[in-house]
């Protein structure tokens, strides 16, 4: 073996390594940037999906905002109460309990007949570009059904059912609001868990028209308006609208609605909440 060649090779490699190591060591000292370590800690707690629900540019942006400019600690809806609590612990502060939020689609499909056939990009936003007919269904307020919200959801909480309507899985939904942003018909809304009575229709078509084309559309019959003991629901421009300032979530309007437009989610949500709480208890014990 050529020991001389070998030693030259080894020696030069070691030399280069030593020089580069010294340069790097000096550089890391010289150009050291002091980072508040709490930023990193907060970022580690955040879910890291960069959904934008907090209004900051991504999770790292929110973490920095919490530490440096004292942004509110409860803005992360995917992280929920637990996340806010952990952040508060790092920041040495107290937070109020955060109530979970869920998305909801204000349209139930209702077997609306089609006006025409469509062939093109299957994206709800593309279907409302002027000249694309505005969705194949006769109702021009309701869900178009191309699943843009389902594709946009960062948590896989929205699936399209066989009627081409979005179904939101509240187990997975974090209330981040991506689906609200992308829906061209503005059908999705985010609301807190305890609010359980909703009007699932947005049609301003005249009652007779809606009655003809949709099984679950508001026909502006005003039965809810008459039934409500708190004067909290009114038919405005052919559509029942709940005034949540007055609404006590009694659910009387739900029972009188002939079209099943108004829903009360209390039972399911209560069951889920209980299940969640028992699970949490078991985890602590």
């Amino acid at each position: 073996m050529d020991w001389k060649a070998l030693s030259i090779a080894l020696g030069s490699m070691a030399g280069i390594g030593a020089v580069l190591g010294i340069v790097l060591a000096w550089g890391s000292k010289r150009f050291f940037v002091k980072v508040d370590e709490r930023v990193e800690q907060v970022e580690a707690i955040l879910p890291g999906v960069n959904c934008g629900a907090c209004g900051f540019p991504g999770c790292s942006g929110y973490a920095e905002a919490i530490v440096t400019s004292e942004a509110t600690m409860t803005l992360c809806s995917p992280g929920g109460a637990e996340c806010a609590h952990d952040i508060a612990r790092i920041m040495g502060a107290e937070v109020e309990a955060v109530e979970p939020k869920y998305a909801l689609t204000a349209c139930q499909g209702g077997n609306v007949p089609n006006r025409f056939d469509y062939s093109g990009v299957h994206d709800c936003r593309a279907a409302v570009v002027p000249g694309m007919g505005g969705g194949i269904k006769h109702c021009t307020y309701g869900c178009i059904g191309y699943g843009t919200c389902a594709r946009a959801c960062p948590f896989g909480a929205i699936t399209m059912n066989d009627k081409q309507m979005p179904v939101i899985d509240e187990e997975k939904c974090t209330g981040c609001g991506r689906c609200v942003e992308v829906c061209p018909r503005d059908l999705n809304r985010i609301d807190r868990e305890s609010r359980t009575v909703f009007v699932l229709c947005t049609s301003h078509d005249k009652g007779a028209v809606t009655n003809k084309i949709c099984d679950h559309g508001c026909i502006a019959c005003k039965k809810c308006e008459q039934e409500c003991p708190f004067d909290a629901i009114h038919v405005i421009d052919n559509l029942a609208v709940i005034d949540y300032e007055k609404c006590k979530l009694c659910g009387k309007c739900v029972d009188v609605c002939p079209k099943g437009v108004i829903v009360n989610l209390r039972k399911e949500r209560r069951a889920r909440k209980q299940a969640r709480e028992t699970a949490a208890k078991e985890a602590t014990t």
């Binding site: 093109g120 990009v121 936003r125 570009v129």
Partner: peptide, 13 residues
């Protein structure tokens, strides 16, 4: 490819 439709969509967004 429906290029024009994508373009119209992109412009809208």
């Amino acid at each position: 490819r429906p290029i024009v439709q994508w373009i119209k969509l992109a412009k809208q967004e």
